[in-house]
Design a protein around this nucleic acid. Structure first.
Lengths: 181, 181
DNA sequence: CAATATAGGTCAATATGATTGACGCATCTC
DNA sequence: GAGATGCGTCAATCATATTGACCTATATTG
């Protein structure tokens, strides 16, 4: 009977692969990722519930805060959901006065999204809930561990998607919204 | 106006906190965790969709594979969902012939869960999809990075939940189901 | 200018995964 | 026997997502 510690298909049991590639280590990674992610966002969930919002709203708020002035299509790419799903979420956020959309100056088909002052306040509160946990874990684990943490996670993202994720880190003031224009 | 690179509330801008605790580093962690987790499970989602199953079914299968013979209440604790939600998922899995539940030998109120042969095959296929990605990321990042990855994620989990997660690693053959009995 | 492509919004119908709170039954423990 | 526990189930509801078609406004290209 197959059990959880079986060798994977197409791999011999005690083969040459390093210790940290064995099933037990892989399962450990899967589980820590699952529970770690869930733990990280638990606090934010509580804040959202008070306002009648959900995780979908949080994700949109987060990325709009991160890249002010981004277009709807950018957000669709980041969230990897359908237009219809996003559309409801954005409508909620606009109705709550947390997000506003302006016609793009260069391309008037686009709707550039940004947080209102109230939206920025909520996003800050949500971010603070995540920051507490993440900064705590960083401090506990140490800087070198953090580098390893980033390295493994980056490796999990397929190369063709990596640029999109890493691009969030560049140009953090969303200069594009006012640059050339 | 508040933007994404603002200093957090109650912290001075260029204060003494180490570089890796700044907002930029925290945001990087949040984003890598989000996209890394999503990337990891994407492959499994495809396999599940072929069978008309969803992520909820996968999570249940995973933990049943990991701790064969676990009770419904154990699974509830791990998944942190309500009895009603789990009950539908488990009913689906039993109906598909992937999971079977037997009355507990020691405590006949319990239902001990285990995978059928077909369930074990599906779980192995799903695990393989995750394993590929995780082992690839481990290999790319190196053993030391993997330790850091674990350390940070462990730190994200609140101490009172940590034991539960780490307990998955012990007694991996699910000995309890046949030991003493 | 005409044709086509793109950005975005919206329609209707549907699926999945989750919730709350109550209730019943079998079984275990005291 | 009383009470606690493990489990299953009821009904109603919510949040998040899907597909595919269709529309408008605007941009691009021949």
């Amino acid at each position: 009977m197959i059990d959880a510690s079986r060798p994977g298909p197409s791999r011999a049991a005690g083969a040459a692969s390093p210790l940290f590639l064995r099933d037990a280590e892989v399962r450990r990674g899967i589980e820590l990722l699952y529970f770690g992610y869930a733990s990280m966002i638990r606090g934010a969930d509580r804040i959202l519930a008070e306002r009648g919002l959900g995780r979908a709203h949080h994700r949109a708020l987060y990325f709009i805060a991160r890249r002010p002035g981004l277009a709807v299509s950018d957000l669709l790419r980041l969230l990897a959901i359908t237009k219809q799903s996003l559309s409801r979420v954005l409508a909620d956020l606009v109705r709550h006065g947390l997000v506003e959309s302006r016609v793009g100056e260069e391309d008037r088909r686009q709707r550039r999204l940004r947080l209102t002052e109230e939206g920025a306040e909520l996003e800050a509160e949500l971010f603070e809930a995540l920051r507490e946990r993440v900064a705590g874990a960083y401090a506990q684990a140490g800087q070198e561990a953090v580098s390893g943490f980033w390295a493994v996670l980056t490796g999990l993202i397929p190369p063709q998607d990596r640029a999109l994720v890493l691009s969030l880190d560049r140009d953090p003031r969303g200069r594009r919204e006012s640059a050339g224009g």
